[in-house]
Design a binder for these strands. Sequence first.
DNA 1: AAGTGGTCTAGACCACCGA
DNA 2: CGGTGGTCTAGACCACTTT
Lengths: 226, 226
Amino acid sequence: MKQGAHSPDLHTHLLNALRNGELTPGQRLPTERSFADQFGISRGAVQRVLQDLEEKGLILRKVGSGTFVSDRLDSAVETFDHGVDITRGNLAEHVEARAAFEPWVVATAARYANSEHKQELRARLERVANPEDWLDYKEGVYQFFRLLYEITENSFLLHIFDLIIKAREDVRYGGERPKTRVSLVIRNNMVRSLEAIAEPIEQNNPEKAEAASREFLDKMILSVNT
Amino acid sequence: MKQGAHSPDLHTHLLNALRNGELTPGQRLPTERSFADQFGISRGAVQRVLQDLEEKGLILRKVGSGTFVSDRLDSAVETFDHGVDITRGNLAEHVEARAAFEPWVVATAARYANSEHKQELRARLERVANPEDWLDYKEGVYQFFRLLYEITENSFLLHIFDLIIKAREDVRYGGERPKTRVSLVIRNNMVRSLEAIAEPIEQNNPEKAEAASREFLDKMILSVNT
DNA sequence: AAGTGGTCTAGACCACCGA
DNA sequence: CGGTGGTCTAGACCACTTT
């Protein structure tokens, strides 16, 4: 819990009650106004707490009828306790998740890439090969893969990808921006890997593209675990 | 935009400015207090608008220093315009997303399932075979797959799966709960499909499990497109 | 008609940042 | 130090649901 955040009394009280099973799924909670009275806080403060719990799937609020304990309380509590916020999460899980769906994305991109896509893919590969600095390099790699997600035209997967990238950046540098150059060895290694993915896409060869994607992600998993 | 929601004047004004490129990445916005004066609304209302835009990645707020246009404005605007809210979305994209990563999940589950997992999987399959009503049937199918995600111990993917399911339920019944029975044909069909997935998992055979998962999802994709 | 959550207001204090 | 966003307050009106 953050400091000075969201009326901690009511928040922890509700959270404990939900975890202990004092509140059962579907059960109706007291009204916002009565919570405000009970805890000696304003209705606005109560609302912020309830809004937070609703976003986390623990409760449900219905205009005109009341606030209720979520039907799927167990699962919600579990993901809550896991601290899964989709904007957080640990690196290993994110890489693993990419390993789960990115080969499909790459294969699909290889299937549907047109000449315009291919040209753009080349351009983005160029940027990775000759980046201005470390940040530009990272962004370039991200843009390379993002294009593949765009080609699939599945905005849901694209969004998930963006979330993963965003989460990682938040972790890595909290505002400072390292202007270091990128090691030539690392860069060439990356370019080779991306090239191996780009080439079968240019030839509209889904099988080869998928294999190259798997190989790339296997390397990433290795580097994460060391 | 919802009705009566979040001071639409300021909201659309900022959105247009961000889209038109009047505001450039990194640029500093006016203060909350000055927005409140300009638009003749309270500071609280301004904050709710800014909070909304920040959650969507369009702007950044820093205590003590100000509000700024996001560095990755282009991508944020794009996903925003896509209307991607992760809690909404269209059915086809969600099914497609599952097709992208669920085979990996099933294969991984087959790799690591222990006897306890297998027993639980049987139990959940039983529920699908003999549901109390339509709702119980749906929940049973969901629980079957959810267990597979749990076995992988990747809370990120589990969370994504939960989000997809939650989105679908919100769409399907907006509060009413159909108590209809489940057609015997449909039910048996589903049980056969799940059986085909469960069996290779019990034998710890990832390849067969993955193939069964693909087959199941192919059917789902077909049924969505008809 | 009465009660509920959704939103807004005007004002206040705080922790934090930059000069 | 003054300015900024973060939070809270007490009160109000609204649209909606339930009785």
